[in-house]
Nucleic acid binder design. Structure first.
Lengths: 248, 248
DNA sequence: CGAAATCTTGAGTATAATCAAAAACGGTGG
DNA sequence: CCACCGTTTTTGATTATACTCAAGATTTCG
């Protein structure tokens, strides 16, 4: 149980500062949030559907995902979580979790008690608004995913999600211009896009053959950003980024 | 521009009162919200993707839907809106709308200026929390829809959405036990489920033939609720209703 | 180096899309 | 009350996208 030593190490504070200028009080309050930091292995649940947690988890390092399992045992990943995200912030106002959150690779997460978050919100209306806003952006991404899964074919669907990941990662400094580390397996991509892993494989091969992307291990490089955006029918508006980092 | 005469006529107040007991001050503040009431025809946009509204719309009567149009001109309905919903409450914190809201049948809607909503929230932290909570429930429904569209077959997908609609309508008093008015065309159902309207037709016929549902005009009757729930893999937890109205 | 996980390939199948057209329904006006 | 119009629902036939099953190749990591 310890506060993060340097605010610059806290991706939540970095994220909020990219939206508006924090007052000293606000930065102080955020830095003082009690947070139990844990290192987790890959492929491990952080919280599970049905849980009634008394704390929320801030993803500090690594990739995670929010997912649901259907009655037929199929998994649907409903979002990828990246550093700075609080994937279960909703549990502050909704008792039982309706989805699980699991790591995709080894992760560093910080658990923050709901009491501390409520206290923070009560004292800092701008932070309340910012948290609320974050959950609204999550909802906007879900809307886009419903559309992506419901109305685009696998090839375009894949292009879309790759665009989204690159832009989101760029926004938190985890991607260079057109390349990033994307430690997501083809099975996981399938679970996110609602297609089989075999089809994921074929679609990725097509994207490579068409010169749109390149992969080396977990490294993804976009070879033709404009074309990929066009194929994926990708318009970053729904990500509601402040300074548009979606260009070139 | 007039306050609703009787709070009982305002489905927003009714909804909040079903969650917690409002103080006199809170009820007063809600009743005094300035609201421009309009009657709209069916199949008409209330707000459009890209708009930067300075007010939000409270759906007072009738069905609406939130939808997106892909670059290929296909429509995806991402949620059905029912009386008491504020489908674009997000615009209070996100500048540009990332989805459109349109009526499905003639509707009565109330437009509430953002200024008034912000003022209401600033003075009433419990109402802020309740509004935030509503948007979190919306997000939970989106998560379920991603799963529904991504990982269930058309037949089960349809069963699921019918279960959801009945439970939601029951929660606002718009459904009897197992029957409700559902003025949604097969084309719209297709746009919501990510399937063609022709396939919607065949799936509905199958549900009827299997004795799960019955339709007479826009009237939907569930003939076998337990079976429909099972087929739709429907567990109402994600709707986060307070008093579980999801039973028999 | 070896085992496990991940990725790749091929073949056959199933779910659902598309296209085209007919039937039924709902409201309007004569 | 009935004829007429547009909308919605229904039917049939063909096609396409994507799934499943099975097995082999490659990569990753201890």
């Amino acid at each position: 149980m310890a506060a993060t030593p340097n605010p610059q190490d806290n991706p939540l504070i970095r994220k909020l500062e990219s939206i508006f200028t924090l007052t000293d009080d606000e930065r102080q309050a955020l830095s003082n949030l009690p947070m139990q930091v844990m290192i987790l292995k890959g492929d491990q649940d952080i919280v599970r559907e049905g849980d009634r947690p008394s704390r929320s988890c801030l993803l500090l390092e690594g990739f995670a995902c929010t997912y649901k399992i259907t009655g037929h045992g199929k998994r649907q990943i409903v979002s990828f979580n990246i550093p700075g995200d609080i994937p279960d912030l909703q549990s502050l106002h909704l008792k039982a979790l309706d989805a699980s959150v699991g790591t995709i690779e080894p992760c560093k997460v910080g658990f923050i008690p709901h009491d501390a978050l409520r206290d923070l919100c009560n004292r800092n209306p701008r932070i309340t608004a910012a948290f609320w806003r974050e959950t609204l952006i999550d909802a906007a991404i879900f809307r886009e995913w419903v559309t992506n899964v419901g109305r685009r074919e696998a090839y375009n669907r894949m292009a879309h999600v790759l665009c989204e990941m690159l832009v989101r990662l760029r926004a938190v400094g985890l991607a260079e211009d057109h390349t990033c580390d994307l430690p997501i397996t083809q099975v996981e991509l399938g679970d996110a896009l609602g297609i089989s892993n075999i089809h994921v494989n074929r679609v990725l091969q097509q994207l490579r053959a068409d010169g749109l992307i390149e992969t080396k291990g977990t490294r993804l490089t976009i070879r033709d950003w404009e074309k990929l955006k066009q194929v994926g029918d990708f318009d970053p508006t729904y990500l509601h980024l402040e300074q548009e980092q979606a260009a070139a």
